[in-house]
Nucleic acid binder design. Structure first.
Lengths: 333, 333
DNA sequence: AGTCAAAATGGTTGCGCTATCATTTTATCT
DNA sequence: AGATAAAATGATAGCGCAACCATTTTGACT
């Protein structure tokens, strides 16, 4: 295996200088038609591929953006990721991705690792980074976007929506429908889930009429199966009184719905169910599940656009972008 | 914003030479306890982060592996990815990921782009790469793993299972259960789906007794909703005769199952349903759906291990690794 | 044809790090 | 203590590319 061809090899084959080859690759329109064709032919012929490390080192542009999500398995972040990848393609960038498993400490390590790639932008999920992580990020000087939630004190830029408000709204929705014994099913209990729960509690506290609430949470990670278990738990805790549940996500809601069939509970007459995130399945089960939809794909796209329009972190305060959410009312409530 | 600190800056603060700092970072045990502590302190103090491009250029090791999957949204590849990320973490590698949207041409472009990162290994999905893509990959000299399917002529290494055999087995399962009017619902129709369909046809052709088959396929991408539509299509085509369906994946199977409720068909007495991939939901719906399970997470992990144990592409033929599959029989059949 | 500006091309240098080899310090033994 | 090996540290060079500036070529105009 003869070693990888480099710029000089291409230059030799094409009969031009190395720098011309470089230009054909990065500024094709600065090179005459004739040479360009010759060089492109040579590149293809010997299968030349530019050495990214050398290019990044010399040009001080890595063409990379860093992304950290809390979980690869959660479809929510998957949607955001797709938006990110779709936008990144337009800009001819590469993504380096890290999964911090909802741990700020793991996130800190990942930030350090990913910063070593000299990314031109950084996308983070949520707002609870460690102090050292924030220091590293600020010092890097690159534009940063925090996703999903809205923050009063973002590191740099911020796009998301208020999980607290969404929690309030969906709870009010249940109250307006006449339900008075509301359960909250929560898993994982990351900051966004906590904000939804806070919204749930606030709506109940502010409600003018007497009503009950039952909160069942676990730090286990969310799954459909867990939804069934939590439904049982909340029915036990409420001694069968609970007549509506707000599940912190649609996986739990689906699991709870499936469980109602086994428990012989009618939805929504015996018990109402609403979820969060509006997964495809929620719209197609019987009865369809009320949920909270948000434009996740677009959020990912816009995060990249924000990075690209920003020229490093400037000190000017950039207002968070509220991308909104929407309550999708369905048969389950 | 004073510019990013480099090795020399750390060296100055720690009162040692630059090369010693480099060694602390890459070979901590080659450095005395005393110096190491001093250097680590300095690194942390000034928030130094190694420049990956320079490191990769000088050491000719990028610490990166490249991965291309056909779809980010398909949970199947998500599972594989998780396996890959989990293994990669052990080896202190970074992943650069591409989504080729099931297109060999897009894949070819991605391969060229990702090779520019000088990855130390390459993980691809499936076996239908373009000729130029194969040329580039071979020329790179790095170890390569093709995932998911088994191939007679892998580029280098290969891990997966036989989708054809799985198709045969699941079809025989339906035949053994006494169903004789079998439908196949297929979406996307990528190579693996085609192999499953081929298995379906083979099992029917080999069956000793008379039986019918109805094949409904579309190149649309798969979704739960589409499963419902395809069920209607197959019932129309079979004039209501079809008594069992093999869905090329569990999304379609779930959609078909939900649709049976609207069509007032009883599962499995009026119609049996089986899927493929064994998603969590399949086990929890009523009735639970028979499916084909495979160890996707492990496949991802093992792919990375294969890369790491390989020392570049050697010419010796490496036998494909058959990771197997398992038919999970449930109430829907 | 001669002049000048603009476009196209090339030569040199350095990006920040690590491989390699050279040197110094420390440990081990007789 | 002296000799030798082993461990620790340092100096130098070069990885492959693009920025920068110098030079050549081309085209447009009088």
């Amino acid at each position: 295996m003869n070693k990888k061809p480099n710029l000089k090899d291409v230059a030799k084959v094409a009969g031009v200088s190395a720098i011309t080859v470089s230009r054909v690759l990065s500024n094709p329109d600065k090179v005459s038609e004739k040479l360009r064709a010759k060089v492109e032919q040579a590149v293809h012929e010997i299968g030349y591929i530019r050495n990214h490390a050398a290019s990044a080192l010399a040009s001080r542009r890595s063409g990379v953006i860093a992304v950290i999500i809390p979980s690869l398995s959660n479809i929510v972040f998957n949607d955001v990721l797709q938006g990110i990848y779709s936008a990144v393609k337009q800009h001819h960038l590469q993504v380096v991705l890290g999964d911090c498993h909802y741990s700020p400490l793991e996130e800190e390590k990942l930030i350090a690792t990913l910063l070593s790639q000299s990314p031109e932008g950084f996308i983070l999920t949520g707002t609870d980074q460690t102090d050292y992580a924030r220091k590293l990020l600020k010092q890097s000087g690159i534009p940063i976007v925090q996703l999903m939630e809205l923050s009063d004190s973002p590191i740099d830029m911020n796009i998301g929506f208020s999980h607290f408000n969404a929690g309030v709204d969906i709870t009010n929705h249940l109250l307006q429908k006449g339900y008075r014994k509301l359960g909250f099913l929560g898993a994982r209990m990351d900051t966004r889930t906590q904000q939804r729960l806070a919204g749930f509690k606030k709506a109940i506290a502010d409600f003018k009429q007497p009503c009950q609430s039952y909160v069942v949470t676990t730090t286990q990670s969310s799954s459909i199966r867990l939804g069934g278990q939590l439904l049982q738990a909340v029915m036990a805790e409420s001694q069968g009184q609970c007549d509506a549940i707000f599940c912190c996500n649609d996986d739990l809601a689906l699991g709870a719905l499936f469980e109602t069939k086994r428990m012989n509970l009618k939805v929504p007459s015996d018990i109402a169910i609403c979820g969060f995130n509006d997964l495809e399945a929620s719209a197609l089960v019987e009865p369809a599940i009320t949920s909270v939809a948000s434009p996740r794909f677009e959020m990912g796209q816009q995060a990249v656009e924000l990075l690209m329009t920003a020229s490093g972190q400037d000190k000017t305060h950039k207002p968070p972008v509220d991308i909104g959410y929407r309550i999708v009312e369905r048969a389950s409530t």
